[in-house]
Design a protein around this nucleic acid. Structure first.
Length: 364
DNA sequence: AACTAGAGCAACCGCCAGAGG
DNA sequence: ACCTCTGGCGGTTGCTCTAGT
């Protein structure tokens, strides 16, 4: 029944690869090509797991890989693509010839996130921190019919009722609301890594930014957190805590546990559903379909003037050296339309939710 | 010179969809 | 039809190097 395991994981070598191992793997793949990775270590005389061999090959030994540092053009391209499609590193890497998903991921985590932070930009949403705070502040002040956009899943099966309360003057309410969302024990029960499920990444951003750029102090956030996640009385002097308690309430009948996954996956906006569907279709086209000439020929290329967002900025000026096969204008149009489509529908969503914020779109 | 903190990066982990037996 | 494995992916860990004290 089934296949035999690829290797005895307790008896294979792990950790860094030696030059001798690299040479064996390189020699084998050069001669036989890549096929079934489970047999590669045996045939190549390596005491490694096939998966480890595959990773070593794809991330390091492949002859078409670049090992030099990322260029400013590549950097900007990563940022733009991340803004458009998020942390789908393999897709992003496919746009950067000679780069692996691991390269891109590492570069993002070690360099670009910090760079964006220093610019005061949330690395998840690619929006200014201040705008995100105001977005959430406005969420809490939305009229009931608008707020109900958040509600359908909450209200399904009478499991949960989300009751926003108004505080039109405060951006901080947004933060408090988010902390409530993040630290709510109910949520934690669904996902113990709740901080990674932040709808936005700015909580960590605040912590990372420390005390320089924001008047909120880490301990301040902690107090909010604790007061929001427990039924104890908040410190009277803690503005955020009181805001937290005053801003939103989640009523959860204990007999019917609320499913956050369903809430997060369910999108009450049909346009957003269409957006997701469309985005998936486009991404599918982006990936690797040999039938798609834009993919096979040029999608690994840098589009000229590729720019996410409505700005006409030409921070990426043509991506020379990245484009191998297609004319720049061809790539530019295919990728730009892809991004434009996403951003256009994003704007529609924002128009529905935050009409007053339409003027605040941010571009690099 | 010794120690520490942070950066950079290679490798591993765990999950998932699809395929093999 | 079912079970298990493979290949691919994103997230995370841990090692090495370097700069600062």
């Amino acid at each position: 029944m089934g296949r035999p395991p690829c290797c005895d994981k307790s008896n294979v070598k792990r950790g860094l690869w030696t030059a001798a191992e690299d040479a064996k793997l390189l020699a084998y793949v050069s001669k036989h090509g890549v096929g079934n990775w489970t047999v590669v270590p045996k045939k190549a005389g390596l005491n490694r797991c096939g998966k480890s061999c595959r990773l070593r090959w794809t991330n390091y030994l492949r002859p078409d890989l670049k090992h030099d540092t990322f260029t400013p053009e590549e950097e900007q391209h990563i940022i733009n693509l991340h803004k458009a499609i998020g942390s789908r590193w393999s897709l992003i890497a496919k746009q950067l010839p000679g780069r692996t998903d691991n390269d891109v991921k590492n570069y993002w985590n070690t360099k670009l996130k910090k760079k964006l932070r220093k610019m005061g930009i949330d690395h998840v949403t690619h929006k200014p921190i201040s705008q995100i705070l105001c977005d959430y502040g406005n969420i809490t002040s939305l009229p009931n019919n608008t707020a109900n956009h958040f509600g359908p899943s909450f209200n399904n099966n009478n499991s949960t009722t989300f009751v926003p309360e108004s505080d039109p003057s405060s951006c901080i309410t947004g933060l408090a609301f988010t902390n409530m969302m993040v630290m709510n024990p109910m949520m934690e029960s669904q996902d113990h890594s709740s901080t990674s499920t932040l709808p936005f990444g700015f909580l960590s951003q605040f912590q990372a930014m420390g005390q320089d750029n924001v008047s909120l102090q880490p301990h301040f956030l902690n107090e909010v957190t604790s007061s929001c996640s427990s039924s104890s009385s908040p410190p009277a002097t803690d503005l955020l805590s009181s805001q937290c308690h005053a801003t939103a309430q989640v009523v959860t009948p204990s007999s019917s546990p609320f499913n956050w996954s369903e809430f997060l996956l369910h999108d009450p906006f049909s346009s957003a559903d269409q957006l997701n569907k469309h985005q998936e279709e486009i991404l599918h086209g982006l990936v690797s379909s040999p039938a798609n000439p834009a993919v096979g020929n040029g999608i690994q290329s840098q589009p000229q003037g590729f720019e996410v967002g409505s700005s006409s900025s030409s921070a990426i000026n043509g991506g020379q050296g990245l484009n191998n096969n297609l004319p720049d204008d061809h790539i530019s149009s295919s990728l730009s339309s892809f991004v434009d489509t996403i951003l256009g529908q994003d704007s529609e969503m924002r128009a529905a939710l935050f009409p007053e914020l339409l003027d605040g779109s941010f571009d690099y």
